Amino acid sequence: MLESVEKETSTLKKFRFLSILEGISYIAFFITMPLKYFMEMPMPNKIVGMSHGVLFLAYVLFAYLVTEEQKWSKKSFGILFVASLIPFATFYVERKYLRKN
């Protein structure tokens, strides 16, 4: 799994916050999909989809930066990346691995 957090840096703090925002945007995207396809309301999906896309890219970038900064393995980056693809996984990773014990 992920290595433990060595030092609490500003990049890590931003990444923790970003992981929560990315998870929320993922959930919001699931909510707006039925609006688009069943209620013919595409605008909320367009706005949330764009926001989710930007947050996803920022999450992946910060995952890389934190992995380098903390001197974690490429496997750890892979775990963080896969977490961005699974609903609720960013919340789990933030709570379980990104907090300094």
Rank of each mutant, 00 (worst) to 15 (best):
S19V: 02
L2H: 04
S51W: 06
S84Q: 05
I86R: 04
T11M: 11
Y37D: 06
I27L: 14
L61D: 05
K14D: 09
F30A: 09
G23H: 05
L61Q: 06
A83W: 02
L61I: 14
M50S: 12
L35C: 04
V48W: 06
M33Q: 12
S25R: 06
I27T: 03
F38K: 13
E40D: 14
V60A: 14
T90Q: 00
M1W: 08
L98K: 02
V82L: 15
M33S: 12
M41I: 14
P42W: 09
Y64G: 06
Y37P: 01
T9Y: 07
E3G: 14
E3I: 01
K75Q: 15
G53V: 08
R99A: 10
L18S: 04
F15L: 07
F29L: 15
S25W: 05
V60F: 15
N101T: 11
P44I: 08
F29M: 14
M50Y: 13
N45A: 15
Y92I: 13
Y59N: 02
E69Y: 05
L55V: 03
E69V: 08
S19A: 15
K13W: 01
I27S: 01
Y26D: 00
I27G: 01
S25L: 06
N45I: 06
Y97N: 13
L2N: 06
R95K: 13
K14H: 11
L18K: 00
L65H: 06
A83M: 06
V60G: 05
I24W: 05
V66M: 10
P34R: 10
K46F: 12
L55G: 02
E94M: 02
F38G: 08
F88P: 02
I20F: 13
L61N: 08
M50I: 12
G23D: 07
A58V: 12
S51F: 13
S25C: 06
E68V: 15
L85H: 00
K14Q: 11
K96H: 13
N101S: 13
L85K: 04
F77G: 01
K36P: 02
I27W: 01
K36H: 11
I79E: 12
M33A: 12
L57N: 08
K36F: 10
Y97L: 04
P42K: 05
I79K: 14
K75F: 14
A83E: 00
I47V: 15
G53S: 10
L98T: 03
T67I: 07
Y59W: 11
M39H: 11
L12M: 04
M43V: 15
E40A: 12
F30K: 02
I27C: 00
